[in-house]
Design a protein around this nucleic acid. Structure first.
Length: 872
RNA sequence: GGGUGAUUAGCUCAGUUGGCUAGAGCAUCUCGUUUACACCGAGAGGGUCGGGGGUUCGAGUCCCUCAUCACCCACCA
């Protein structure tokens, strides 16, 4: 088949992916005698559509998977989707609201049914888009964070943790989202700053400041720093009367270090029910708290006349009332206040006290390394001991900092979409019995906890639960340990080799996987963690839905420029853990790499047509042949090493340099003079095999148009050993390159097309035609008579014959290069005159410096000799 | 308030344990359609690596400090 002049990606990509799938080449084979390699794909939201972040992680993981296959591993890259509890639940509730109903009206069963239908229809979208990216995943092992096996695992883990005392139920301040009617984890909160008013009120003998007067109905305590000299006459637990919003109250003085004397008046009242800090102060002193704001965000009966009002409605009215009573002192309008919002739903968070389930991160209950350790300690241990390696390493600092500040993890959510908590309650008059188990308890009156578990609880089980055989998981007679022992995938592919994900979910997900996996399986979940950065717009901003122009839509890019162009643009100049900027121009540049490869293939195929490939074994005929094999060998070593160490952009740069600077610019150009079609074909095939992990489609497309000694699709080809070459002959071609480059410069600088050379060197004379074709020199004569000018960079003696009219221009050029060489020689000389350098630097380096200096001096001498001609 | 990272050519960025005469892509300028490629080729210009100090024979690279920016964590009534 003949290749078209230009590579049109969309004509090939889909068919190629289908061919890969038909041949089942991405299917893992645990029975393979080869070594095994595995990656768990971070499951994207099933309701999502492919964005640039997905495109990045698919690209990186696909490169790793294909690279491992080419190295000869049996590879499992396991795909899946996440049920994304919070956001999916919110979508459905919004839909219901639009239809004029709500979840309580339709009931739990109906709600779940609607949700299931909705997600089933959208899951295909994301999976098709993952395929479009070229992902070499094993679709036969697709998993879902809400499927039966995972549900079983979730319950098993919950029950085990409960029995070990690692999960407890307690009254704690949680981040309540009145809009979504659920609490969310600390990590899912964002803070935004806004202008607010800071009110100062009279409170008994004190002045207090607050930005939130609406929470002050039940404030019966003033808290003062014990060291605050202004208030030494008030003792801890002193009582006083104060006129307040709804009449006179009796209040108590509390002394606590948490108060900052320099803020406001140094006196504050506390609202334990609606503030974490206040709650902690109240706990220290055993104070009562009272709920002021309902879970619907409206004021409760304690607010008296303000009952039922929202916070916005009530605030000004309360201030007005206090003002009328003469209690308002002043208002600071320049106050900036940060408010907590839900990073997913954007609802304003109202701290509330609720009975919730928590995971204890400090209890030493987990067996690891023959010790009883806490989750916190395990998280520190595995990274400290290098059992799990972080790339880039500097994220360790952030990681440890996060662990130091880790609190117990609240895992219950007041939503319906997700894994329901396997806890049941029985009301016995004034006491509630609690039962936690895999199956509902016997007997009447038990009711299951309506809450579900945080999505991250189930996704933290991802690496191992996905490797459990789903058929075995249905057998309730088997224990969880049995399941792990009998599942061949788990035995073969766990721990996984690498977790590749964004640094933004290091804590949400990565850390929690380490916790849960070690706790259950006694294995680490992965050996390496590679963190990539975020992809930003050309102006450096985060791509956001509110600014549609800023969004690079991978689907559109793929259609327009091809998947490979997108993949290459994503890894070009990318550094681990660092955000990168991606714009259209970068994609176009990388589309050009594909086109270059395509045209190299076209040229070589035409060549082969003209002089068909013989059946002889590979025969290196010309100096250039040895040279290109040397370059290919170097490139291959560097490329493989770069990918082995997650240096994606380096790997790409190496193959890019080889293709453009070596193969196309020099070898193909020289093959127009001296053609070795066997070797051309070999170089093309090697380049395709090497480039395949980073640009799978265009390479497979070219491969498909060729006849190969090797069978099968390109995606199944491994890296092979490279043929031997002769080092000396390779260097001969280096000599030719030096000459050609200098001649090209001369021709440009002197603005002539009429440049002639003469030499008596046999080497040059046998390569006359090649040098002429490559450099554009007019003629190379066999003539030993010297002319005033010589080529300077070649070790061969080659004279230049130029017209007298050009001599002056040539003189300027000589002076420039003399100055240049002088500077170099001066630097090297200084270095060699430094005794310390001679003593302390490695001998090898000193020798190198000496020969560099000699080279520079020789060149200077030559130039000077030529310049002397002008002395008159 | 605590922390992390960044600062290298006009722009976007590489630069792996210090050895650099600091690189690439894009952009700019000049020339060129020679058996693949104008989604091309050849050549050129452009940087005291944010400032200052230190360690070292040697610093873009390590340490200190200042400045600017970005992000993360905590959050004060």
């Amino acid at each position: 088949m003949k290749l078209k002049p230009v590579y049109i990606a969309r004509d090939y990509e889909q068919k190629i992916y289908e061919a890969w799938q038909e041949n089942k080449i991405f299917q893992a084979n645990p029975n393979s005698p080869q070594e095994h390699y595995s990656i768990s794909m971070p499951p994207p939201n099933e309701t999502g559509i492919l964005h640039i972040g997905h495109a990045l992680f698919i690209t990186l993981q696909d490169i790793l998977a294909r690279h491992a296959r080419a190295k000869g591993y049996d590879v499992l890259w396991l795909p899946g989707t996440d049920h994304a509890a919070l956001s999916t639940n919110a979508i459905i509730e919004k839909k219901l609201a639009e239809e004029g109903t709500n979840k309580n009206q339709i009931g739990r069963a109906k709600f779940l049914e609607i949700t299931r239908e909705y997600v089933a229809s959208s899951r295909n979208t994301i999976n098709a888009q993952i395929k479009a990216m070229g992902a070499s995943v094993d679709w036969s092992r697709t998993r879902y964070t809400l499927d039966d096996t995972l549900n079983r695992c979730v319950k098993e883990v919950f029950v085990k943790m409960y029995n070990d005392g690692l999960i407890y139920r307690g009254n704690r301040i949680v981040n309540w989202d009145p809009a979504l009617q659920t609490n969310i984890s600390d990590d899912e909160i964002e803070y935004i700053e806004e202008d607010a008013k800071l009110y100062r009120f009279k409170f008994g003998p004190f002045e207090i400041s607050t930005a939130r007067p609406e929470t002050k109905f039940a404030d019966k305590y003033v808290v003062i720093n014990p060291h605050d000299k202004r208030y030494l006459k008030y003792k801890h637990l002193d009582q006083f009367k104060a006129e307040w919003i709804n009449g006179t109250i009796t209040a108590t003085v509390i002394k606590d270090e948490a108060v900052d004397p320099s803020f406001g008046t140094g006196v504050m009242t506390i609202t334990p029910w609606h503030s974490l800090v206040d709650f902690e102060i109240a706990q220290r002193h055993n104070l009562e708290g009272q709920q002021i704001i309902g879970f619907d965000g409206r004021l409760l009966p304690i607010a008296g006349e303000f009952e039922g009002m929202t916070i916005e409605e009530a605030r000004n009215k309360i201030v007005q009332k206090l003002d009328k009573k003469g209690l308002l002192i002043d208002i600071d309008h320049n106050y900036r206040h940060s408010i907590a919002i839900n990073s997913r739903g954007k609802g304003i968070i109202e701290p509330q006290i609720r009975l919730q389930w928590f995971i204890d991160v400090n209890k030493r209950k987990i067996d690891w390394k023959n010790k009883k350790m806490s989750f916190k300690e395990i998280l520190q241990e595995v990274i400290k001991n290098n059992e799990i390696k972080l790339y880039p390493k500097n994220f360790e600092k952030v990681y440890f900092h996060w662990i130091d500040n880790l609190r117990d993890w609240c895992i219950s959510r007041q939503i319906w979409w997700g894994h329901q908590i396997p806890a049941w309650y029985l009301n016995n008059g004034d006491k509630t019995e609690v039962y936690v188990g895999l199956q509902p308890p016997q007997g009447k009156g038990w009711e299951q906890d309506p809450d579900t578990l945080d999505t991250w609880f189930s996704s933290s089980l991802w690496t191992w639960s996905t490797l459990i055989d789903p058929n075995l998981a249905r057998d309730q007679n088997l224990t969880l340990s049995d399941l792990l022992a009998k599942s061949i995938d788990f035995q073969t592919y766990h721990p996984t080799n690498v977790l590749e994900t964004g640094w933004d979910i290091l804590f949400f997900w990565v850390a929690r996987m380490i916790m849960s996996t070690i706790y259950i399986t006694k294995q680490i979940p992965f050996k390496d963690i590679y963190l990539h950065g975020l992809v930003r717009t050309e102006s450096g901003k985060k791509m956001s839905k509110s600014d549609p122009d800023s969004i690079i839509d991978p689907i559109k890019i793929i259609d327009q420029y091809g998947t490979d162009a997108l993949r290459l643009a994503l890894i070009q100049d990318m550094a681990p853990g660092k955000d990168e900027i991606l714009g259209r121009s970068k994609i176009i540049t990388n589309r050009n790499f594909c086109n270059k490869l395509w045209n190299v293939a076209r040229f070589i195929q035409n060549k082969i047509k003209d002089s068909p490939v013989s059946n002889d074994s590979l025969n290196l005929k010309y100096d250039a042949d040895h040279w290109i094999i040397r370059e290919l060998t170097k490139t291959k070593e560097k490329y493989i090493k770069a990918l082995d160490t997650y240096h994606f952009s380096d790997a790409y740069r190496h193959i890019y340099r080889f293709l453009n600077d070596k193969l196309a610019d020099w070898y193909i150009e020289s093959s127009k003079t001296n053609s070795n079609s066997n070797l051309l074909k070999y170089c093309l095939e090697e380049t395709l095999i090497l480039s395949h992990p980073i640009a799978p489609f265009v390479t497979e497309a070219i491969w498909g148009t060729e006849e190969h000694s090797k069978n099968g699709l390109l995606a199944t080809q491994g890296y092979e050993n490279i043929v031997n070459y002769n080092q000396q002959k390779a260097q001969h071609f280096d000599d030719i390159m030096v000459i050609v480059s200098e001649v090209r410069q001369l021709i440009k600088n002197l603005e002539t097309t009429n440049l002639n050379l003469s030499t008596k060197s046999d080497f040059i004379l046998t390569n006359t035609k090649l040098i002429k074709n490559l450099s554009g020199v007019n003629e190379i004569k066999n003539d030993s008579r010297p002319t005033p000018f010589k080529l300077k960079n070649s070790k061969h003696t080659i004279y230049i014959n130029i017209a007298t009219s050009l001599v002056r221009a040539y003189q300027v050029k000589l002076k420039n290069s003399l100055a240049n060489q002088e500077q170099i020689a001066k630097n090297l000389k200084n270095r060699l005159e430094n005794q310390d350098y001679l003593k302390k630097a490695p001998q090898e380096l000193v020798n190198q410096t000496k020969s560099q200096l000699q080279l520079a001096l020789d060149k200077m001498q030559n130039i000077q000799d030529e310049l002397n001609i002008f002395v008159y």
